[in-house]
Design a binder for these strands. Structure first.
Lengths: 172, 172
DNA sequence: GAGATATGTCAACAAGGCTGACATAAAATG
DNA sequence: CATTTTATGTCAGCCTTGTTGACATATCTC
């Protein structure tokens, strides 16, 4: 089988040249795509008196029931004061519940309430629609290529952390 | 040649099911990837007393010499008041030059100064490094897959506009 | 019991969005 | 040519979401 012969990877040859020419196309496409991607939930969030910061918090809490404050801070990379402002509102409006930790009673374990879970799902589906629409008409391996690429855009130090977070702990 | 037989596209079969399950993986990877992607230039921008808003303005002006205010507003999707705040600073610090239009003297045509062009290039190269690093070790058609996907994430109404903007007017 | 850790909170500030109102110059139009 | 429309600028104030610094409390660890 010809597959046994390793293919020559062209990126080794052109790397230096390519590194000098800015990848304007991808830079700009990434900007426009993200702009539209995050704008979808805005209208709905507005109805609840929430903003994008609330969305991010609700999303990750819903995805990881029992998330602690420290873990959430690590994901969002904001200060605890910034987090607390939006988190407080989400708790007051009964979208997130904060329980005292059992093993470590200093910790606060965060859970989405039924109402919070519902909103999180609604917003996720909205974004999923755009994601899947863009994926349709692509090769079957398209999704795998995209997610591998996005993962490799992340800082190498964080990559493992994000991978566990997104795909689950897998083999522990 | 077997290629003449059109392949059955699996997305037609699974579409309804997939549409119901949120694509949490891509949603989250997109969030983390963009977070790191825009953070690269931050340190350099800080040295000049600029922020991300300045970066976006400088980038597009540098890419499209002679860009008008209206076109820039259309790209950035912000109000003219917001734009003017950062644009004024970029002009005062001599990174962007504003010339009165020739055909239409009401317009302001924006140009990056040599200093502005240099900064824009520096920032673009920084982001290009990340983009290309993530692209290395990928299939040769990887870049094409990515850019096609990002383009399809954009609102359909804007897609042609963005395409012209990113890849040039092509056949006019 | 002492120190470290997880969280909460107050106060002030900055960046970068927004709205509304109004001004000016130049083009377009009847 | 008078009127209206368009492109831009500007003032004033507000909101969201980020920041720093300081300090408080409860709980865990040693």
């Amino acid at each position: 089988m010809p597959d046994a012969i390793p293919a020559v990877r062209p990126e080794r040859l052109g790397k230096d040249i390519l590194a000098e020419l800015p990848a304007y196309d991808l830079i700009e496409l990434f900007f426009f795509a993200y702009r539209d991607f995050v704008s979808d939930p805005d209208r709905i969030l507005g109805e609840y008196g929430f903003g994008r910061a609330h969305h991010r918090v609700l999303h990750f809490v819903n995805r990881q029931p029992g998330l602690t404050i420290a873990e959430l801070l690590d994901i969002l990379r904001i200060t605890k004061q910034s987090l607390n402002r939006v988190l407080k509102e989400l708790i007051e409006k009964d979208f997130i519940e904060s329980r005292t930790g059992t093993a470590d009673r200093r910790q606060r374990l965060l859970y989405a309430t039924p109402q919070g879970s519902e909103l999180a799902l609604k917003l996720a589906k909205l974004q999923t629609r755009r994601i899947m629409r863009a994926l349709s008409d692509m090769e079957p391996e398209g999704k795998e290529v995209i997610s591998r690429y996005l993962l490799r855009l992340i800082d190498p130090d964080d990559r493992d952390h994000v991978e566990r977070l997104v795909f689950g702990p897998e083999k522990t």
